[in-house]
Structures are given as structure tokens and as C-alpha cells.
Simulated assay, not measured.
Amino acid sequence: MKKIIYGLCLLAAWTLSGQSNSNSFTQSNQSLWKDFTYDMGNVFQGVGYAYSRPIYWQQDDFYKLGATTAITLGLYSIDDQSRRYFVEHKENVPNLILDYGWYAGSPQNNYGATGAVYLTGLFTRNEKLRRTGVLLLSSATATGFLQQLTKSVTGRARPQTNLGKNHFKPFGGSAGYRSFPSGHAVLTFTNAHVIAKQFDSWWIKGPIYAIGVTPGLTRIYEEQHWASDVFLSWVLSYFVVESIDKYLDKKYEQKYNATSTDDLTSLNFTFTGNRIGVVYSF
């Protein structure tokens, strides 16, 4: 009888243990799903926040816009000369670097890498890495859509068409009229700026930025973009990342910058898995 009672106790303990593990597994999945929907909501909200920033520009922001415009026009004025310089020195650039510029800036490769960063943070429960992944995905989405729209609207001829720096065909449609801005430069510099923000030392930041600007430069060597296209692409990436990063400061406890977000206002999109909406925060 004692053996039977002992056996029943063991069976009950094993059953309860199995239920506990099952509940733990279920709770873990629910927690992962909760984190995932929260993060994806922040991806879309970050995009909306970045697009709404010009509404809230202050005097300093217009100074930055003026400086950016002046430098871009300066580069535009020498686009023909800079094109000749890059073409004349292309043979000095290793094919490995030129190939890297193409593959690193391809959207499918970019989203594959940024997605891997985010999923690693999600499954390891590392909030800082999750936040970094959200910033990468949100910034790439915001800059990627904006550069595609701008390319179509401006219709600037690529250098390889030999039509000159002043040739534009708005809504031209063909690949030869999609020079401005550079998608490769936008995506790779976006990634570089996000990653560089994780570090304080310029001995680390410097090489990261060098890797980030290389694809943009190779696109000039390949006569796919003008120097002014690439420069403005880098500026676009920088300000979009900065904007979204400030927004994420108030969404995650793990921060790597100390920017205050008390006075931030925004027009945001919400996403919770089964609900989509628009929220104005002030």
C-alpha cells in the first residue's frame, strides 16, 4: 500500500511539474509576443514621428537646413568635376570594395542584417539590443520610403546616362532617372550611425562611419550617383536616426544617450497586433 501511495505521489509531482513547465512555456511565448507587438508598434510610430518633425522645427533646425542646402548646392556646382575625378581613379579601387558597396546597400541584405539584430535582442530578452533593432528597422523604413519617393519625384539622370548633372525628368520611371538620392548610401549610413551611437569612443566610431560611407562613395565610382546625391543621402539618414532615437528614449528604459524627451510632441501611429490608430502626443 505504501508503494502505491508513493507511486501516486511521484505521478502527481511529475504531472504538476509538467503543467508548471507548460505554463512557463506559454507565459514565455505570451511575453515574447507582447514584446514583439510593442516593438513593431514603435517601429511604425518612429516612422510617423520622424515624418512629423518638420512641423516642430525651431530656429536652430532651420539653420541646419540652410547649412545643408548650401553644402549640397556647392557639391552640385562641381558634380561634373567630381564625377570625372572618381571615374579617372576607379581603377585604383579594389573590386572587393566596389562589390561590398553594392551588396551592403541592397535592401534585402540590409533588412536581413537589421532583422537579425532585432530578433537576437528579442529572443535573448536584451532590451538594449531590442531597442537598437527597432531603431535600425524604423530608420531604414523611414529613409527607404522617403528616398524611393524622392527618386521618382525628382527624376534626376544618373551620371552614366551622360545627360549631365542638370538633366531631370520628374516621374520619369526608368532606372536611368533615379539618381537622387542614393538608396545604398541612405541604408548603409543609417546602419552605421545607429551602431556608432552605441559607443562613446571615436576610435570605435571612426571605423564604423568609414564602413558606413564606403557604399555611397562606391556608387559615385560606379557612376550611379552624383556626389551631391550621396551627401544629401547621408544627411537624410543622420537626421532621421536622430529623430527616431529621441522618440525611443521615452519608450525604453535602456538608453545610450541622455537626451531629454520631456518636451517632445508627435503625431504617431499605434500598432498592438489587432489594432491600428493615430495618436497625437504633447
Rank of each mutant, 00 (worst) to 15 (best):
E223I: 02
V47C: 15
Y280F: 12
L163H: 08
F239C: 08
N42G: 07
Y111W: 15
T69V: 09
G48Q: 09
T272Q: 12
L122W: 07
V186S: 15
Y103K: 08
G176Y: 00
S237T: 06
F199C: 01
S266K: 04
S266I: 06
G101I: 07
E242L: 12
S182P: 09
L236Y: 10
D249T: 11
F271H: 12
N162P: 08
Y247C: 09
V279G: 08
S82W: 05
L232W: 09
S174F: 01
V87K: 11
G48A: 09
N95Y: 05
I71N: 02
K64H: 06
M40N: 09
G155M: 03
I97F: 15
F199P: 00
I204F: 00
G105R: 02
A227F: 08
C9I: 12
K128T: 08
E127H: 05
L10D: 02
T190C: 11
K165P: 13
R53G: 01
F282I: 05
L122H: 07
Q59T: 10
A175N: 13
I97E: 05
Y177G: 00
F180Q: 04
G46T: 08
D263T: 08
T143H: 03
L32A: 06
T141I: 15
L119Q: 05
N95G: 15
N110K: 02
F269P: 02
I276S: 04
L248T: 10
A175P: 09
D263M: 02
S243M: 08
T214L: 11
R178G: 01
Y221Q: 05
V213S: 03
L65M: 11
A140Y: 04
G105L: 01
G46E: 13
L11I: 15
G206K: 06
D39G: 10
L236R: 06
R275D: 15
T154P: 01
Y38Q: 14
Q147S: 15
G41R: 10
G115K: 10
N109D: 07
P107N: 10
F231T: 04
A50W: 10
N268G: 12
N42Q: 15
P159G: 03
V213Y: 02
T120Y: 14
D60Q: 07
P107E: 11
D263W: 01
T218F: 07
T124E: 04
K90I: 13
L65V: 14
Q108Y: 12
S106C: 04
S266N: 13
P159F: 01
W14T: 14
S31E: 14
K169P: 00
G112P: 03
